[in-house]
């Protein structure tokens, strides 16, 4: 039996790595992948706590989060494609039309 704390710490490390990737990478698609990784880490936390309390609500939540993640990927990649077609770049430092 693995203590629940280990799963939570693992999820925290994955989440921090995803946050680091979002902050340092310049490619919009990789920032996207890192956001997916952070969502995955949160899902892992929910499943670990669902297992700890023997309560299935956490797993239902994870299912809803996955549906939202799928919607987010569809919209996000469509926006990236539109930007690539419009500006011929995928570097977030050059996508600064709305930057103050």
């Amino acid at each position: 039996m693995v203590p629940t704390h280990y799963y939570l710490i693992l999820a925290a490390i994955i989440f921090s790595m995803g946050a680091l990737g979002v902050l340092v990478r310049r490619n919009a698609l990789i920032i996207f992948m890192c956001v997916e990784m952070m969502l995955n880490a949160v899902n892992l936390t929910l499943v670990a706590l669902a297992n700890q309390w023997g309560n299935l609500s956490g797993q239902v939540f994870v299912f809803i989060v996955m549906a939202v993640a799928a919607a987010e990927v569809a919209i996000g990649l469509a926006i990236v494609m539109a930007i690539v077609r419009h500006k011929d770049t995928i570097n977030v430092e050059e996508i600064n039309l709305l930057k103050w």
Binding site: I13, M17, M37
Partner: peptide
């Protein structure tokens, strides 16, 4: 974790 580090 190795795979996540590779992604980043």
């Amino acid at each position: 974790l190795g795979m996540a580090l590779g992604t980043v």
